[in-house]
Design a protein around this nucleic acid. Structure first.
Length: 259
DNA sequence: ATGTCGAATAGGATTCGA
């Protein structure tokens, strides 16, 4: 089973590039971030015609996540637990009913800039809520994958120019500490496990010729539960997508799990 | 002091978020 994450930065803007990548890469499941659409505005029919079921958790203008799956989905949940007042659409999860089921948690972790400030406080609170959800899922001992745009540069080697990120919410010590806490619960960073850095990136800014200069960062991650990591066969980054027509600033990242 | 893009609002240029 091939599972992917892709921050598309707007479904309307990516209505050609996304189906083109799906046709070429043929993932079984894709978690999308920044669909920037309400549920009713998402063009489900485009993806249903390609054999995908579509579940969205959208909001107007910003954020928004979705799951596309060639397999049936069960136990679909929208929103990260832990704060009923949080109205931002950043979390969707479901169990993929393949030959061997796996739960996917698709996430768009808050950017957090500027830091310090209320947006950074929200980021750290969100990460703490995610830790609670992951602890609960680990206790169930079911295989699961938390995949998405984490907006976290885990280590120095995950940025081409780490020095420019030292005061950024994506790289501040408290951000990296919260991310390490997640990993240290027992999750496996699939790209780190299969493609150790440096020079392995998933995002290149639109500005200042970042792509042409390979000034990238690695912020899109797939974290595998122990039972999912046992099934890890392959992990990759579809870097060439960044050089295509009207690209997102992120590229797809994927894993292949046994069965 | 961002070599930019996407969406919303408004009906073009500006603002926000990233």
């Amino acid at each position: 089973m091939k599972l992917a994450t892709f921050n598309i930065n707007g479904i309307k803007a990516r209505i050609e590039a996304l189906p083109a990548w799906l046709a070429a890469a043929a993932p079984d499941v894709v978690c999308l971030q920044e669909i920037k659409s309400v549920d009713d505005g998402f063009p489900c029919e485009v993806f249903e015609a390609m054999g995908y079921r579509v579940e969205t958790h959208g909001q107007k203008g910003f954020n928004g996540v979705a799951i596309l799956s060639k397999f049936a989905l069960s136990d679909i949940r929208r929103g990260l637990p832990g704060d009923d007042s949080d109205e931002q659409a950043r979390w969707i999860e479901a169990v993929v009913e393949g030959t061997r089921p796996v739960r996917v948690c698709g996430l768009y972790l808050p950017n957090g800039n500027p830091a310090p400030g209320p947006k950074y406080d929200y980021k750290l609170q969100w990460m703490a809520r995610m830790e609670v959800r992951v602890r609960d899922l680990l206790a169930s001992e079911e295989p699961f994958v938390c995949l998405g745009d984490y907006n976290v540069i885990p280590q120095t080697e995950d940025a081409a120019r780490p020095n420019v990120w030292v005061t950024d919410a994506l790289f501040l010590p408290a951000t990296r500490e919260a991310y390490r806490r997640l990993l240290n619960l027992g999750l496996t960073d699939a790209i780190r496990a299969r493609q150790p850095g440096p020079g392995v990136y998933t995002f290149w800014d639109y500005q200042a010729g970042a792509w042409e200069r390979n000034n990238g960062i690695r912020i899109d991650h797939l974290l595998l539960s122990p039972q999912a990591a046992d099934r890890l066969e392959e992990a990759g980054i579809d870097k060439a997508v960044r050089g295509g027509d009207r690209p997102s600033d992120h590229v797809p990242v994927w894993v292949r799990l046994a069965s």
